[in-house]
Design a protein around this nucleic acid. Structure first.
Length: 743
DNA sequence: CCTCAAAACATTTTT
DNA sequence: TGTTTTGAGG
């Protein structure tokens, strides 16, 4: 277990990390707060720290828990730790809060009365539950929007208020409504054997609080806990950590109070601001050296965020060069904005040898993406809209998963209602309500009740409806009976074929439904991939297909594998600023920098909300490595109407010495406004082509086109290559900048 | 029970 | 302007 023979990992840490980073990675004297500025290498610190703990400190990987918010972050962390210690350590837990909680609850949830086969409800499952409950309570959706009720419930949960407490605290009519829905919503989840995202956390905390023995087990196991993005933790997450680390606070949290942008989702900035109060002997380490952006960008960001009060305080600096000023441009309207941005991207792409993947466009609201998408299509600029709708959010995928969930958990009414009439089985809302009543009366799970309607007169359903229900339920009975002999993919296929779901899309003949069928195949593909992975890891242990399916479903709900930025594709990225967090790009456009839009009008009343908008802006600005543009328009089409707009206050908060006002002279490319762009292309911008060239090679250049190599002087990246281009004649190019492609 | 057209509505969304 | 919810009519 102990690797005493090899050189201490600590030596490597002192060599490869800067002093504050090393201090953070090596400190084991108690609670530790690492304030990690944007681009300061926090993941590096966490991964080196994990490696240090298991390599030098005699800890088994089993004793270390690392918690992140996203699966992407967890995956990246796993990979990097594996890279450091040579192979992924067995027993090391790196995962999201939710996946860790779900694992705890599936193992030990029985102690507080949870079924280990519980289903996890995502946002849309929650919403359908709320809608149903509102109907049952006789609350019209005009009285209160289902969405705001759900938000209120979720916020109550993140304050750890169960229905009773919430009801006692309800102060106004709306909260009374919420309280009624909340109670019934929670009952429904229990009947359905379902937990929503918030429940995963709350129930875990409850389990650890109520069960001494189980708590001790986890405490003994997790001797070191590391938490990433601590500024985004909410109350239950804080409590969970506290329960896990109650007696022996080897806890290390990493975060940046200036990058907290999820307060509206329950994140509680106090967790990080008051860490020292909660752990009086906590040590604080600040990581202030930024390795990402130019001096201008860092200074601008620092000045801007300085307008916020209530910060822990941190001064970023960088060793990089000053860089170009931030380009600010005012445009007549939103379509001109899209025109100008795409035009500028094309210009830089051809004149600066930047790849399309070097560009990103950030906006405040998703609705703004359309203009850019259209402009890109018009010009043939390759683009990718990040986080449009995730694969797992697509209708056909949700349907297929609902079938699967119902197979695993026959009590899951939300899934039942979703698919019972897809394809159409003449089982409308009224008929289904009757079945639900019958299930309640006879205390049967919903699938069992559906099956029994055929033989039980007590259901009060028409013969036709009873037959339809029975036939529907029989598909699941059949699949269950064959689960032992089928692979996961076969089982899934069987389910979708027998239920008629696949035929339902095959019957449609438009190209849309073909795409849907492909998505379904993709899902089944993923399932069989999942099965292969499990079988490889678990060895020869026989695993029942139903259990396998359960694992796959969990993966599908908890891992919303959104099509994120694919670094292999050479495309411009478009995304909301929220989605940009954690990413970086050489050249960034922040568009729609206008009052009412950014800061958004809904945040103007509350000073705290305004500060969050400013942090959001800070996050956006600090994504840029080399060049940043801010654009705003005189009038913008919003909800179909033209609205006049003023420049965002955030622009003014950047001192003018860091800005350069650009001017727009119309959509004529001959009168194009040329900004001063003497930014050099840093090494990291260059995709180093490892090809070497020699005389006679046929090559292609992005702007000069096709040509023949006449001669090469020097070697490697600095080699000077003389090329005779078909259209522009002879040119001498430096290999590392030219990005020549052999033809 | 289903369909389609009018009406209402419109931040951000790691799990 | 696009999307989602509603209610009237088939």
């Amino acid at each position: 277990m102990k690797l005493t023979s090899t050189a201490p990992f600590a030596d490597r840490i002192r060599q490869e990390l800067n002093p504050p980073q090393a201090e953070a990675a090596l400190y084991t004297g108690g609670p530790l707060l690492v304030l990690a500025g944007a681009g300061s290498g926090k993941t590096r610190v966490i991964t080196y720290r994990i490696a240090y703990l298991i390599h030098d400190c005699g800890l088994s990987p089993w004793n270390v828990l690392a918690v992140t918010f996203t699966n992407k972050a967890a995956g990246e962390m796993k990979d990097r730790v594996a890279g450091l210690v040579g192979g992924s350590p067995r027993g090391l837990w790196i995962g999201t809060f939710h996946s860790i909680c779900s694992r705890i609850l599936r193992t030990d949830g029985k102690a507080i009365g949870l079924d280990p086969h519980f289903t996890i409800y995502d946002r849309s499952d929650q919403l359908s539950t709320v809608k149903r409950v509102m109907k049952d309570c006789g609350i019209a959706s005009q009285e209160a929007k289902p969405n705001s009720i759900l938000n209120a419930i979720s916020r109550a949960k993140s304050r750890f208020e169960w229905p009773d407490l919430f009801a006692a605290n309800a102060k106004n009519y709306f909260e009374d409504l919420v309280s009624r829905v909340y109670r019934r919503y929670q009952d429904t989840l229990r009947v359905n054997k379902a937990l929503d995202f918030d429940d995963l956390l709350m129930e875990s905390v409850r389990l650890l609080k109520e069960n001494e023995e189980i708590r001790r087990g986890y405490q003994k196991r997790f001797q070191h806990v590391l938490v990433d993005e601590y500024q985004d933790t909410n109350q239950p997450q804080y409590l969970l950590l506290r329960e896990l680390r109650r007696d022996c606070p080897h806890i290390c949290v990493v975060g940046d109070d200036d990058q907290s942008i999820y307060k509206w989702r329950g994140a509680d900035l106090r967790n990080i601001l008051e860490f020292q109060d909660q752990y009086p002997n906590a040590k604080i380490v600040r990581l202030e050296q930024n390795y990402r952006s130019s001096k201008v960008i860092i200074s601008a960001a620092t000045e801007m965020i300085g307008a916020n009060k209530g910060r822990l305080g941190k001064t970023l600096w960088t060793a990089k060069e000053d860089g170009d000023p931030i380009g600010v441009i005012r445009l007549p309207d939103d379509s001109a904005e899209a025109y100008w941005v795409c035009d500028e991207i094309q210009r830089l792409h051809s004149q600066k040898n930047l790849a399309f993947r070097d560009f990103a466009v950030f906006y405040r609201t998703n609705a703004q993406s359309r203009q850019f998408e259209e402009e890109c299509i018009r010009r043939g600029v390759p683009y990718n809209i990040v986080s449009g709708l995730a694969f797992y959010e697509r209708m056909e995928i949700k349907d297929a998963l609902a079938y699967a969930r119902l197979l695993v958990n026959p009590s899951d009414r939300v899934s039942f209602e979703r698919v019972v009439n897809v394809p159409k089985r003449k089982l409308g809302a009224v008929t289904v309500s009757k079945l639900i009543d019958y299930a309640d009366r006879s205390k049967k799970n919903i699938l069992r009740a559906a099956w029994d309607t055929a033989s039980d007169r007590g259901s009060g359903l028409s013969a036709a409806a009873a037959a339809a229900f029975h036939q529907f339920a029989d598909v699941f009975r059949y699949c269950h009976s064959r689960a032992a002999e089928l692979t996961l993919a076969e089982l899934f296929n069987e389910l979708l074929n027998r239920s008629g779901y696949r035929a339902y899309w095959e019957a449609e003949s438009d190209p849309q439904s073909d795409a849907r069928l492909e998505n379904i195949d993709e899902l089944i593909n993923a399932a069989s991939q999942f099965e292969a992975d499990i079988r490889r890891n678990e060895g020869s242990q026989p695993i029942d297909s139903i259990m396998m399916l359960e694992g796959f479903l969990e993966n599908a709900t908890l891992v919303s594998d959104q099509d994120s930025v694919n670094e292999n594709e050479d495309k411009v990225s478009f995304m909301t600023i929220h989605a940009a967090k954690g990413l970086e790009f050489p050249c960034v456009f922040m568009v729609g920098m206008e009052e009412q839009l950014f800061p958004h009008q809904r945040s103007l009343d509350e000073p705290n909300d305004l500060e969050e908008e400013r942090r959001l802006c800070y996050v956006g600005v600090t994504r840029a490595k080399v060049k940043l543009y801010l654009s705003h328009v005189e009038s913008r089409r919003q909800h179909g109407r033209f609205e006049w707009a003023q420049p965002s206050r955030f622009i003014e908060e950047i001192p003018s010495r860091y800005r350069e006002e650009l001017s727009w002279r119309g959509a004529d490319h001959l009168k194009h406004p040329y900004p001063t762009d003497n930014f050099t292309i840093h090494d990291e911008l260059i995709v180093q082509e490892d090809a070497s060239f020699q005389s006679g090679d046929m090559v292609n250049h992005r702007s000069f086109g096709f040509g023949v190599v006449l001669g090469v002087e020097g070697e490697g990246g600095k080699a000077r290559i003389t090329v005779d281009f078909q259209n522009v004649g002879q040119k001498i190019l430096i290999q590392e900048y030219a990005r020549l492609q052999k033809v």
